[in-house]
Write a protein that binds this DNA or RNA. Structure first.
Lengths: 138, 138
DNA sequence: CTGCATCCCCTTGGATACTG
DNA sequence: CAGTATCCAAGGGGATGCAG
């Protein structure tokens, strides 16, 4: 028997679902930050930035490896919906779909490049600290 | 036929677990990026930046709401281990633990501020695009 | 042949209760 | 007050099937 009466504490009451944000209820800036502060989003945007030209899905996936197609699709939809990325479909055989940064998307790049620079400059220190802590604490 | 033979494709073989990166195998820069490109990490670092002084756990949680204690603890340990955040424990009652940015952590802030500025300047556009797509596609 | 949706499963993150 | 342990829903990875 299942007299369980599932506790069901507070099922679903999030303010900003990171995966599929329904509607930015609060601050737009926070919404934009959440969009960008995602593991794969930055990789994708950088790949598009480096390409500096329309790039096909498959190629994009290789550039952002080891991302999965599922995740890449998801994030591209999200970015497209946010106006940072544009998708162009060619009605031809074999099918071709190209992605590119929009003007709005390009405005993001300086900040992302800054982040990337920091990572390149201080990544070594971070890893060093990490390894040291690993040695000390076990 | 016994369809048993569970497909069992490739159970667990990840290269870079984002949650608890064991050891930065590849590029340190990539490791640092993954560390920063996390939903809560940026919020936490900004809170520490704004405080500009040692801040207690509870206070930090309020500043980074609606983060959970579990997540805050996890990310703080990660940041501490990476050398971006320092933790100081006071052996007193009631217990007190203070967190602060390290010098290394401060080097990150300019880049993060840049990101934040972008979010404040263009967050409106992002939300606008989002809403428009929502209206057009259903 | 390319891109996307679906399935299953494991990991991550949120919420609560409890201990030092 | 700080932190851990536990339960549970959701997110993300892998493989496959399908549509254009």
């Amino acid at each position: 028997m299942t007299p369980t009466t599932p506790p069901r504490p507070t099922p679903a009451e999030q303010t900003a679902p990171s995966g599929e944000a329904a509607a930015p209820t609060a601050c737009p800036a926070a919404f934009a930050m959440e969009l960008v502060a995602h593991k794969w989003t930055i990789h994708i945007l950088f790949a598009l930035h480096r390409a500096d030209a329309p790039i096909r899905f498959r190629k994009l996936q290789r550039e952002t490896a080891p991302i999965t197609q599922k995740e890449l699709t998801k994030r591209l939809r999200e970015l497209e919906r946010s106006g940072l990325v544009a998708r162009r479909i060619f009605a031809e055989v074999p099918p071709r779909v190209e992605y590119r940064l929009t003007d709005l998307g390009r405005t993001l790049m300086p900040a992302l490049v800054g982040l990337h620079r920091w990572a390149e400059q201080h990544g070594g220190e971070v890893v060093d600290h990490w390894r040291r802590a690993e040695r000390e604490s076990g």
